[in-house]
């Protein structure tokens, strides 16, 4: 049986349908990404799995334990890291770790091998108050505290939000190591570039799952050709493209415009000529490989 099973889970708050009956499964030892924009329902889902929130309908189980009925068991086998830093800011690094080890009936030494790498980076600051750590260090401490009781499943809610690029890389490297220890990891993130670091991802928007697949699989399912257009005047070109009947979707990705067309006869050259004729002379058009973000935009467009 898969360690995480979510079956038709639904939850609504007063006016918002946060989750509209979603289902998916996470396999043993998988690093599973939950990718979606803010307000997609990621936090609601993770809080239900962490047994902090009761679902309206549907079922979910972690290693065979129902998240509603067997919450006592759940709390022993799950490591949870909320999106907001929730360790004691007025306790030191060392004291936080000791406290969480203590309440889980464990000690730092017992599972030291799990947190060794992370703790090594924290060691110079172990006498410092947690509130006085940098953002990246806080995330590392929070991860250590979530790991201190050697959980079978790790639930991470937007662990890299508000963390600098270097720390984000380090953090994902750590997740890779934990996966190697056999821990099943469910991580949510609004950053599409992190999707490719997961084994499988679920694209989630407005409380619904758009697609569950490997990052490669999701990209392979992208239905059209994708063109990338670079131009010094990207904003007016974007507006122009959207008025063209052959253009299906056009989005700005950094400096580049990603375009899909509904006409399969179009080539790079014909698109370039079309634009030159409209006065956008110094633009370059190339056929590009879609990214997860392109897939997401396309799926989100279909969903609306």
């Amino acid at each position: 049986m898969n360690p995480i099973i979510v079956n038709k889970l639904a939850k609504s708050y007063e006016k918002v349908n946060a989750l509209k009956g979603i289902s998916f499964e996470v396999e043993d030892g998988e690093l599973f990404g939950l990718i979606g924009p803010d307000g997609a329902g990621k936090t609601t889902l993770i809080r239900i799995l962490a047994s902090l929130l009761l679902p309206d309908t549907g079922k979910a189980s972690l290693v065979g334990n129902d998240v509603v009925k067997d919450f006592h068991e759940i709390r022993k086998i799950v490591g949870y890291m909320p999106s907001r830093f929730s360790l004691y800011t007025d306790l030191t690094v060392q004291e936080n770790l000791e406290f969480f080890a203590g309440v889980f009936g464990s000690t730092i030494e017992e599972n030291y091998y799990l947190i060794k790498d992370i703790y090594h980076m924290l060691e110079p600051f172990k006498g410092r108050l947690a509130g006085k750590l940098s953002g990246g260090m806080k995330q590392k401490l929070a991860l250590s505290c979530a790991l201190i009781h050697k959980p079978k499943i790790l639930l991470l809610d937007e662990p890299t939000t508000g963390v600098d690029a270097v720390s984000r890389k380090e953090f994902w490297a750590m997740l890779g190591k934990l996966k190697a220890e056999g821990i099943t990891i469910l991580v949510s993130t609004p950053y599409m570039d992190e999707a490719s670091l997961c084994d499988r991802i679920a694209l989630i928007d407005k409380g619904e799952i758009l697609s569950v697949n490997t990052p490669k699989g999701i990209i392979a399912l992208f239905p059209q050709k994708l063109y990338g257009i670079s131009t010094p005047n990207s904003f007016s070109l974007l507006n122009h493209l959207r008025t063209l009947p052959i253009c299906k979707d056009a989005f700005l990705f950094g400096q580049e415009i990603h375009v899909t067309t509904s006409n399969s006869n179009i080539t790079c050259e014909s698109l370039h000529d079309l634009l030159s004729n409209s006065g956008f002379t110094n633009s370059t058009v190339t056929l590009i490989e879609p990214t997860v973000e392109d897939c997401f935009m396309q799926l989100m467009g279909n969903n609306r």
């Binding site: 949870y80 830093f85 929730s86 800011t89 889980f104």
Partner: peptide
């Protein structure tokens, strides 16, 4: 208020 209760609530306390 600080959200620390979240972390306490997922412990077996």
């Amino acid at each position: 208020e600080l959200g620390t209760i979240e972390q306490i609530n997922v412990t077996p306390i």
